[in-house]
Amino acid sequence: MDYSPPPLFKQGTSAVARLVMYVAVALALLIVDARFDALRTVRQVAATVLMPVERVVLVPRDAVRTLFDYAQSSAMLATENRDLRRGAVQQAEASVRQAQLEAENNQLRKLLGLVQQSATPVTTAEILYDARDPYSQRIVIDKGSQQGLRAGYPVIDERGVVGQVTRVSPFQSEVTLLTDKDQAIPVQVVRNGLRSVAFGGARAGQLDLRFMAAAADLQQGDLLVTSGLDGTYPPGLPVAKIVQIDRKADTAFSRVYCEPVAGVRSHRQLLVVRYDAAMPARMPVDEKAEAPVRGARSAAARAAAASAAAAKAPAAKEAQE
Rank of each mutant, 00 (worst) to 15 (best):
Q206K: 14
P292W: 05
Y3V: 09
P284A: 07
D69R: 15
P6H: 09
A119Y: 09
K312Q: 13
Q91I: 04
V264Y: 05
G160T: 10
P260Y: 06
F171Y: 09
L58M: 15
A216I: 05
R61F: 15
Q107T: 09
A17E: 01
R18Q: 02
R247C: 05
G144F: 13
Y257V: 12
V59Y: 14
V64G: 00
A198M: 08
G231N: 14
A198G: 08
A305Q: 08
A216M: 05
N192S: 08
D286G: 01
L8D: 08
K10R: 14
D250G: 05
S95Y: 08
A304W: 01
R191A: 15
D222P: 06
V89C: 00
V243H: 04
T166G: 11
Y153H: 15
P7V: 03
T13M: 04
V225F: 07
V264S: 02
A71D: 01
D276Y: 15
S136N: 09
K312G: 05
A305W: 02
A289Y: 06
A262I: 05
G144S: 15
V155N: 07
L84P: 00
P284M: 02
R255L: 14
V49G: 07
Q269T: 10
V168M: 12
D222G: 12
F253Y: 15
M279A: 13
V261T: 12
P238W: 08
V197P: 03
M1A: 11
F9Q: 04
P154G: 14
A300C: 03
A198L: 12
Q90P: 00
E126T: 11
V42A: 11
P235S: 13
R297P: 01
T13R: 12
P154W: 14
V264P: 02
Q188G: 01
A75Q: 05
R247D: 04
Q91V: 10
L128Y: 06
Y70F: 13
